[in-house]
Write a protein that binds this DNA or RNA. Structure first.
Lengths: 337, 337
DNA sequence: TATGTAATAGTAAACGATTACTATAAGCAC
DNA sequence: GTGCTTATAGTAATCGTTTACTATTACATA
């Protein structure tokens, strides 16, 4: 039974009115005789009618779908942002779909094309490449966008994120004040705003304190755990001399770093000090808690949702939102003074 | 510019053929003259045509949307499963939308209704209540379902999960073998299969070893961190005597438990031993690593995806899949012998 | 009485794709 | 020439809604 869905047509036939009237009852946007209305509502109840949103969407040229496109949706940082956005948008009748680009610009481009085909209503995105991202495709079709975490300067798209330069600067300075001079950095992807700015912050802090950055301690990470693990493992395998401290440019790479150090029995902070931009899950239970800065992802998600909704509802207020991040003091930094 | 999307009609007009022909070129499912075909393809290129999937979906009565409905999509356990499903389905042209019920049956019912309206193609679900879940609504509309993690017995729906009874039994027995007799349990929701079976496993292990279960050490959790934290905090505030060991019935509650114990300066395992069904993120870095069983969520996700796809593609093979879980030995259990 | 307007409801055209039918022409066998 | 098949392509219906038009009635106003 019930092989075919009940449609407005069925309701119309059942009650002897036109589909237009049924639609009007459902949307309550046009005067309908009270008795007719009740008859229709009764039929809807009896036949267990449920609207077909695909049809509705075709007619309205919308999809009630919003996407969040990030490098890796398994990253707790993005998860937390996404969940918050989802909660807010769900209230307004939107569903969120999450897309991971795995930092590949090709995949990101494919995803954007697919989203356009799906008539996506809005997109929150952390572009995997600040130059090559095909955001113009979205702009051309007037799809509202919010940049999350990663910025793109030339396009005037609202942005929600943190002050990456400052985060890196402060953490590096913290190390310096503890007496560290031989400091390395595990960088993020340098074709993203976050990667660039964090490295810049690191270098500036070094420079301002008259320290030079040793090239061999600049580890080229890509924001992912594996790469950080491998780059550092390679370095350690060659028995090169370690810096006394290392700045890790995101949470995933901090994990990769810790795993590599663990494997070589290098202790934190006895043998090397670590600071991290971004926290690891459950770090409060760690034997060595990593000193880090923590972003308020719930707040960020909320702000992203607000910016998305304000664009969807044409209440344009397109300002950028830079969220302050918190300093978390752990015990991963050795006092050298 | 480009306010309106380019449609097949535009391509048809531009090339002087009918929309039927354009459709045939695009789908390559009907003979089209080679020159006509090239002309159409050229127009598609030039006008930058992209298909409208909403229209396609209306016509085909599908949505290319699959949903995963769980208590809390922020739970790393579900995230990992979801990500795996997403990856597999994306390859086949489906998008995954994630829905959190927050363990509320009302919310779950609303979600199911919404999904039906969206013409959802398939649903993976961990029902928030094994009795009251409105899966019949989905079944009535012939929407393929896969039960994830939580089972429902009477409906014959394929299931992917673990042997919850055995997991609880083994962990409890492990404690007993270490000499523990005063053992408590932080239960999950008892209106779910996982909650019920884990408690049953715990009780059976106790019984089989001639131990009695003290009611005051049965803590009524609901699988969520907060509830576990609060129930235990309340207990500790009343200065009641502790069991020597506690079985926690999922990862989130283990966290709540640890937080509550921390706050009261109760040490693991010196003051109380803890075992957990399910692992916490990054537990490899914990000062006290919790002895637990770990589910292979990637494998589970893969199996769920397979079952979903096989139903979507009518290759019915509806067997249940029970995944073996791994025993992780930590240092959270004190030897009492 | 003539006229304006509000309530009520139906008709039919959209939205953008797919496809069952139908039609034409060409090629081939007899 | 007749009949059959195949390649090719158009027409128009369809998926399930919404809505611009149009139409009718009732009632108030001048």
């Amino acid at each position: 039974m019930d092989l075919k869905n009940v449609t407005m047509k069925d309701i119309a036939r059942y009650t002897g009115v036109s589909t237009a009237t049924v639609s009007r009852v459902l949307n309550d946007n046009y005067p309908v005789n009270i008795e007719t209305k009740q008859k229709v509502l009764k039929a809807i109840e009896e036949l267990n009618y449920e609207p077909n949103l695909v049809a509705k969407n075709l007619r309205s040229r919308k999809s009630n779908l919003v996407a969040i496109v990030v490098a890796d949706i398994k990253n707790p940082y993005y998860i937390s942002i996404a969940k918050e956005i989802d909660d807010y948008l769900f209230e307004e009748g939107y569903n969120l779909i999450t897309c991971s680009t795995d930092e590949s610009i090709e995949k990101e481009t494919d995803i954007i094309r697919l989203l356009l085909s799906k008539q996506i209503d809005a997109v929150a995105i952390a572009p995997s490449d600040s130059e090559k991202s095909k955001l113009t495709e979205l702009i051309k079709k007037h799809v509202p966008i919010v940049l999350v975490d990663r910025k793109i300067d030339d396009l005037s798209i609202p942005f929600v994120g943190t002050n990456n330069f400052k985060e890196a600067y402060n953490l590096t300075e913290y190390l310096i004040k503890k007496g560290h001079e031989k400091i390395g950095v595990m960088t993020g992807k340098l074709n993203t705003s976050t990667g660039k700015e964090r490295l810049k912050g690191f270098k500036m802090a070094m420079e301002n304190h008259g320290l030079t950055v040793d090239e061999k301690w600049i580890f080229n990470g890509d924001f992912e755990e594996i790469q950080a693990y491998e780059v550092l493992s390679q370095f350690l395998k060659n028995k090169q001399d370690l810096p006394t401290a290392l700045v890790s440019c995101n949470n995933l790479m901090t994990k990769g770093t810790m795993l590599a150090l663990n494997e070589h029995s290098i202790r934190i902070p006895e043998d090397i000090s670590i600071v991290s931009i971004g926290v690891m899950e459950n770090h409060e239970f760690f034997s060595t808690k990593i000193t880090s800065v923590e972003q308020d992802t719930s707040f960020m998600g909320k702000k992203v949702a607000e910016l998305l909704l304000s664009q969807l509802q044409n209440k344009q207020k397109l300002k950028n939102i830079v969220v302050e991040s918190a300093f978390i003091k752990g015990n991963s930094v050795k006092e050298l003074n």
